[in-house]
Structure formats: structure tokens, C-alpha cells
Design a protein around this nucleic acid. Structure first.
Lengths: 148, 148
DNA sequence: TTGCTTGCAAATGATTTGCACTGCT
DNA sequence: AGCAGTGCAAATCATTTGCAAGCAA
């Protein structure tokens, strides 16, 4: 196990601990599987990656981890939800989504551009009485495989 | 009926006609209801707005209209999908989403900023072998009502 | 007549939950 | 002992689909 993964598991354990919840073997396996991917993962993919996990408990653990701020649920147009580690554990990024097959890849934008966006978003939110939170960008396209 | 709405219904009829489908009363009612809102609408809201529409037919009509490029399905974290008119009928915009109640409002960004984004997205897509399509941005926050 | 539409009822399928059991602490 | 976590099976619920009847070209 690398230092980076020590840090990740430590953070996950701490966030669960704050809520009187345990960092069990199954939860650790889920976090490890999410960390091993560079893109959001569906539940079936997760179960395939870590055989032995039960479907219902994995759904429950993902919900628990989401509540604790370790995992983020990514909604997509496909049939399954996708899951990834929370942004503050992996860094701010966005998604490149294939409109044909639903594949998702992570993308990072130039920090200067992100700053411009934050400014524009703050203005838009303020104008409507919203308290600004984060933002997420989906870039839509067709992946190499689907372009044929 | 205004000139703008004539144009809208004409475009909808044309796109359905291209696919050998009819612009029926029900479909016209759906399009009119979507046009009457400035934000994406859920199916229950649609049925409330236009009593008499049946649930299954409305789902089917929304799918038909989506295929024809008249309607766009907006996925959200809530329990219902949201629907809005296709972008080329209403203009390019993004969404301000309340993380507590799921309310969505439309937002437009400065055209210069959109151009910067397009450039960055084109580069990101090209680097990964994607053919670039559109993009959608969700600005997350808490609406006035949920801030209490 | 031909075939798109419609509405009802029934099916589908991802996600959630009830419950009894296991295992930390 | 006490309570969080687990897995199985059953329930939930938005959305989809089969089917028979209605309607437009």
C-alpha cells in the first residue's frame, strides 16, 4: 500500500468515525476499487471488481460513504448510477461523457478557466438568492470506440 | 398564440414530420407546457399542468419528442427526470440546482466565457479521441427557500 | 385500410428496506 | 452485552411496454 492510499483510507476512516461508523473491510474494498479507477464506476462494475461484495450491502455502504463525504454519486443518462471518490480526496475535475455508450472519463480544466467560471457562477447564484456550492461540467461527445 | 410560439410549434411539427410522426394535440400540449416554464419540468408537474394527459402516453410522447430533437431529458439527483425544450429551440443555457430541494433554474453565461469553454472542451475531447458534442454545466447551491 | 396514437393494466429493473445473523468493541 | 454491519429475500417506485381501441391520411 502506497503513502497516497494510506492517506486516502485514513481520511475515509476519519470521516466515518466522525459519524460513529466503522471503516469495515467491505467499505475499504469499495474505496480501494474507486481509487483504482480514473473514472466513475457503476455498481455492477464494482461488484465485478470485488467479487464477494453483496449488492444490497454495497448500495448501503455507498450511501453511508456518500453521507460521510467520502463518495460522490454521479447521475448519468444510463441505467446505472456512477460512483467516484469525493472531490476533496481526488481533486476537482469534470467529466467527458460518451452520448452513445455512456462511458465517462475524468477531465481537468485550466485553473485560470476554473477561476473565471467560479466568478461567473458566484454572480449567477447571487442574482437568484442561491448560496453557491460547487459545480460540475459534463462535456458530451462520442468516444473513439463509438465513432467506429 | 404568439409568433414565437407559432415558430416553436412549427419547428416541433417539422421535426416529427421528418420521422413520419404526427404533431398531435397531446404532443402540442406537452411542448406548450415546457415552453411555459423557464426551467426543466418533471413528469408529475407536467401532468398537473395539463390534466387529462395520461402518464404512460406522456412518457412515450416525451421519448418520441426527444428522439425527434424537440425535447431534452435532464437527469438530476432527485427521483424524477426533468424535461425541457431542446437547446436549439430555446437557446444555450445551464442549470442552477438546489442541492437540498432539487429545484432547477436556467442560467446563461457570458458568450465570451462560453467561447473559452468551447475551446477548452475541444482540446480535452481531441486529446481523448472524442468527437465533441455539447456540454452542460450544473451550478450547485442552496436556494433562497432552503437557506431558511 | 393502414398505421400512428392513446390509455389501461401489467411488467421491468435499479435501488431500497425488513429482518435475522454475524462480529466488532 | 450492545450495537453497527451484512446478506438474503421481498418491497418500492419511476419508467417502460403489451395490447386493444381510436383516429387521421
Amino acid at each position: 500500500m502506497t503513502a497516497a492510499s494510506d492517506e486516502l483510507h485514513g481520511a475515509a476512516a476519519a470521516r466515518l468515525g466522525d459519524r460513529e461508523q466503522r471503516y469495515t473491510t467491505n467499505r475499504r474494498a469499495i474505496v480501494a476499487a474507486l481509487a483504482a479507477h480514473t473514472a466513475p464506476v457503476t455498481l455492477p462494475e464494482l461488484l465485478r471488481t470485488k467479487p464477494g461484495l453483496s449488492q444490497s450491502s454495497t448500495y448501503r455502504n455507498l450511501a453511508t460513504l456518500e453521507d460521510a463525504g467520502v463518495v460522490r454519486r454521479v447521475v448519468s443518462s444510463g441505467e446505472h448510477a456512477h460512483f467516484e471518490l469525493a472531490e476533496d480526496l481526488t481533486g476537482h475535475h469534470h467529466h467527458l461523457v460518451c452520448v452513445d455508450c455512456g462511458t465517462i472519463e475524468d477531465v481537468t480544466l485550466d485553473p485560470a478557466l476554473e477561476r473565471s467560471l467560479d466568478g461567473a457562477f458566484a454572480a449567477a447564484a447571487a442574482a437568484r438568492g442561491f448560496e453557491l456550492g460547487g459545480h460540475s461540467i459534463d462535456i458530451e461527445g462520442r468516444c473513439r470506440a463509438c465513432r467506429g
